[in-house]
């Protein structure tokens, strides 16, 4: 099967590869780049476990061909922590608020929440629930996930205020 060259940026790093056009982005990230943070859940664009950030929007990487992502800027959960290993406020929030049990949905939840909080930095709990309506969790009942995102929103807002002072 003939391959197509692709160039993209993943977690800030340039990546070049040759892929079969039918290779889904989730398979490329996991199997070619070894980024196993984004998970494969339903494979039918329902569950959101494979959510990554691409060109400034949240996408389900099970429903994007890698060739479509040629030239794109992609962020996965592996790119969330700072260079010094410090956790992103969302990662911290999911720990502090027990926002996970089995953890399968967590990378997708964090990546979706990452984009959602840029679209809406000070959401109500109901807005958070609509914001993550494309991500399924089968353990927690979502209560603590909403709290974790709220934690991150508050922390990021406080950091913003400090930076402004």
């Amino acid at each position: 099967m003939s391959k197509t060259p692709v160039k993209l940026t993943v977690n800030g790093n340039p990546v070049e590869a040759e892929v079969e056009p039918r290779t889904l982005l989730i398979h490329f990230l996991r199997e070619e780049l070894g980024l196993t943070g984004p998970h494969i859940g339903c494979e039918t664009s329902h569950c959101g476990a494979c959510t990554v950030d691409m060109n400034g929007t949240s996408v389900k990487a099970c429903t994007v061909f890698t060739v479509q992502a040629n030239g794109a800027d992609v962020l996965t959960v592996e790119g969330m922590a700072g260079a010094d290993g410090s956790l992103h406020p969302l990662q911290e929030g999911f720990m502090a608020e027990h926002g996970l049990q089995c953890g399968y949905c967590t990378p997708g939840m964090i990546l979706r929440a990452y984009r959602f909080l840029q679209e809406n930095p000070n959401p109500s709990d109901e807005e958070i629930r609509w914001g993550i309506s494309g991500n399924l969790c089968r353990c927690t009942g979502y209560q603590n996930i909403v709290k974790a995102i709220r934690y991150a929103a508050d922390k990021m807002a406080a950091a913003g205020r400090e930076a402004a002072e």
Binding site: T57, T63, V64, S133
Partner: peptide, 9 residues
């Protein structure tokens, strides 16, 4: 229609 990620695409 669908959910935020699907609406983005």
């Amino acid at each position: 229609i669908a959910d935020p990620q699907v609406r983005a695409c």
